[in-house]
Amino acid sequence: MLQLHKVGISVGEKHIIQDFSFSFEKGKTYAIMGPNGSGKSTLASSIMGLPPYTVQSGSDIKLDRQDILSLDSVQRAKQGIFLSYQSPISLNGVTVSQLLHMALLGKKDPLAIRQEIRLYANELGITDELLRRPLNEGASGGEKKKLEVLQAAVLEPSVAIFDEIDTGVDVDSLKTISEFLKKYQGDKTYIIITHYNHILHYLPPDEVLVLGNGTLKRVGDSRLAREIEEKGYEGVSII
């Protein structure tokens, strides 16, 4: 369970998130929606512990009742948090397999890692050629997102945050990704950051959170996502 309590986040002098409190439970799927600039990605990056964000004092983030704010992103990853990047980085000369072997060194048997990569890549429709290439180099938008999902599957986090996993992905790939995530969810917490309702058809959320201007404006079920789709954020009085 991931608990955020009175979380405030800033970059330099600028406050981006204020007073955000919410508990994400095991095995459940959450959607975080909100207009551009509402702070969705900032929230995701800060949970992961990535620069350049500063979490203000008085904020509290706990994973399974353990404080994680004092941990760096490496330790947070090891504790079970995963962030699928909105724009995955290309790595010159490093393959996804090298990355995963390094990340799981001493934690998982190399042979098992290899088998899992093969299995998951196959299910996600990632070709061998793409696996052999340096990560994300020359990859299409859809391929990049699939490689993020592949990492999420092999790393087995307890909380996986997908920042716009549906952006730049064609309909078929989106379906593949969603079904894959559903199949391997188990008791993982999924947090889906999205602008569109589309992915939520395949991956129905237990709860929908709507951010506006750095604060949590509304929480509802999947009907809220549909409402936003029909009326826009203005229509549901978020802005």
């Binding site: 992961m48 490496v74 990355l99 990492q151």
Partner: peptide, 16 residues
Amino acid sequence: YLMSRGIKRVDAEGLL
């Protein structure tokens, strides 16, 4: 990016 996967900075540098 590599650190967010649980790879220590020194190892990330080595990998790159």
